[in-house]
Simulated assay, not measured.
Amino acid sequence: MRTRRLSLGTVFAIPAALFVLGLTGLVGALLADGAWDGIGAALVATAVAAVVWARLRGPSRPRP
């Protein structure tokens, strides 16, 4: 069986993006009022949405 070698950038690209979105949402919601509260909640919810999407998608299957 042939395995693919993945770089660190490939492995951590999505988690890093989710971290940046969540951190931006938290800081924005804490520092500003009004529209930033809704934007911050939406940005923080992206991590939750990613987990729900991954759970609904199911386990990945190896490709032949």
Score class of each variant (00 low, 15 high):
Met1Thr: 06
Met1Tyr: 02
Arg2Glu: 11
Arg2Val: 07
Thr3Gly: 03
Thr3Ala: 13
Thr3Asp: 07
Arg4Val: 15
Arg5Glu: 11
Arg5Gly: 08
Arg5Ala: 13
Leu6Pro: 01
Ser7Val: 05
Gly9Gln: 11
Thr10Lys: 12
Thr10Phe: 09
Val11Asp: 02
Val11Asn: 02
Val11Met: 09
Val11Gly: 03
Val11Trp: 03
Val11Ile: 15
Phe12Arg: 10
Ala13Cys: 08
Ile14Ser: 12
Ile14Met: 14
Pro15Glu: 04
Ala16Asp: 02
Ala16Gly: 11
Ala17Pro: 03
Leu18Gly: 03
Leu18Tyr: 00
Phe19Ser: 14
Phe19Cys: 14
Val20Gln: 03
Leu21Val: 04
Leu21Gly: 01
Gly22Gln: 03
Leu23His: 05
Thr24Glu: 03
Gly25Glu: 01
Gly28Asp: 01
Gly28His: 01
Leu30Asp: 07
Leu30Met: 08
Ala32Ile: 07
Asp33Phe: 04
Gly34His: 04
Ala35Asn: 01
Asp37Trp: 04
Ile39Asn: 00
Ile39Lys: 01
Ile39Thr: 10
Gly40Tyr: 00
Gly40Asn: 02
Ala41Met: 08
Ala41Asn: 09
Leu43Cys: 08
Thr46Asn: 03
Ala47Arg: 09
Ala47Gly: 15
Val48Arg: 06
Ala50Asn: 05
Val52Arg: 10
Ala54Gln: 13
Leu56Ser: 12
Arg57Ser: 14
Gly58His: 08
Gly58Pro: 02
Gly58Gln: 08
Pro59Asn: 11
Ser60Trp: 10
Ser60Phe: 09
Arg61Tyr: 06
Arg63Ser: 03
Pro64His: 07
